[in-house]
Measured scan of single mutants.
Amino acid sequence: MSIQHFRVALIPFFAAFCLPVFAHPETLVKVKDAEDQLGARVGYIELDLNSGKILESFRPEERFPMMSTFKVLLCGAVLSRVDAGQEQLGRRIHYSQNDLVKYSPVTEKHLTDGMTVRELCSAAITMSDNTAANLLLTTIGGPKELTAFLHNMGDHVTRLDRWEPELNEAIPNDERDTTMPAAMATTLRKLLTGELLTLASRQQLIDWMEADKVAGPLLRSALPAGWFIADKSGASERGSRGIIAALGPDGKPSRIVVIYTTGSQATMDERNRQIAEIGASLIKHW
């Protein structure tokens, strides 16, 4: 058993032996400061991975655009179909130039040979490839079927209504393609630790998130040596930015963190910096 498999397999085991986890309101002070700095709403939640207890939250039940963070949920739905014998990670999917949409750094290189379902999930999560996400959405029946999958998990909040890139429109008060921090954190925890997916599929999902290559300026920039993080970021119109993550010290995840912001006029660099500073406060007061 690899170190990674050891880590995921023991998450339920550690729940019975973990020390009490204490919240630190200092992080919420930073979240509120980020709102002031960005001139935008910020949603935040910090969840204990083992118990599911909410440690801190700010606007946990307000809607925010999901942006590309939905791609983790999408690959969770794909893995659920794999577990049920309805899909194979090794199945190759062929597509054409007409299928390519904006920001497809991986799929645009494989027009001649296509990509496997496994490769598409990797591209969608680690590189946020939009065509990969659309191709995967097609395999499960489209955005409405992803919403149905989430409903069956008990998440009646999170919804996907459109495809890439239209889902990134982020119109104020538009509930399409949105979630709430509390709903996203709970759903992510179920995917990573619950019985919905097999152990192998849970491991695969967290491996893809751990290999994320496009979230460096966010929480990863504040991470001390030896800490673990598996994450997925997102960005969209109207100053929207977000990240969902499982992270913790000693090389294993122990908390879920979800951060969303929307409605800012700030630059992408400034949005990144504010999220990184929230992460730094979280780690300092861990």
Rank of each mutant, 00 (worst) to 15 (best):
W227M: 01
A276G: 07
L73R: 02
T107C: 14
M1R: 00
K252N: 10
G239P: 01
P20H: 09
T126P: 03
L219Q: 01
G90M: 11
R91M: 04
R81C: 05
L74S: 00
H5Q: 13
K284A: 14
L10C: 15
I244T: 04
P165G: 03
R59S: 14
S221G: 08
G239C: 06
L38I: 08
P217T: 10
L160N: 03
G39S: 12
R176V: 05
I244S: 01
R241L: 01
A215L: 01
E164Q: 03
G52V: 03
L137R: 01
E61V: 11
R92C: 07
D174Y: 03
K252H: 14
F6S: 10
L167R: 02
T262N: 08
N173V: 06
L136I: 07
M1I: 08
T107A: 11
L135Q: 07
L89F: 08
A185T: 02
N98D: 13
M180L: 07
H110D: 04
A132S: 07
A9V: 12
Y103V: 04
T158P: 02
E87K: 01
R202G: 07
R59W: 02
A200G: 14
G194I: 05
L79W: 02
L199I: 14
G43A: 04
T262M: 10
T147H: 05
C121G: 05
L196I: 13
E56V: 05
L47P: 02
H24Y: 06
N98E: 14
R81H: 08
A225V: 12
E237Y: 07
I283Y: 09
L219V: 07
T267A: 10
V8A: 12
T187K: 00
L135D: 02
L89W: 05
L160P: 02
D155G: 02
A148I: 12
I259M: 07
K284V: 08
R241E: 00
L55Q: 05
H24T: 09
S128D: 15
I206Q: 11
L100V: 12
R238T: 15
L89Y: 07
R220P: 01
V21A: 15
H5T: 07
T187H: 06
D250R: 10
L47V: 15
E164Y: 00
D269Y: 12
F228G: 03
R81Q: 09
P224I: 02
V29G: 12
W286R: 02
L219Y: 00
I278D: 00
L219I: 14
L10P: 10
E175H: 10
S240W: 02
L10E: 05
M268V: 08
R162A: 05
M115C: 06
L188D: 00
A40H: 04
G239L: 04
T178Q: 01
L219S: 02
L197G: 00
I275N: 00
P20L: 05
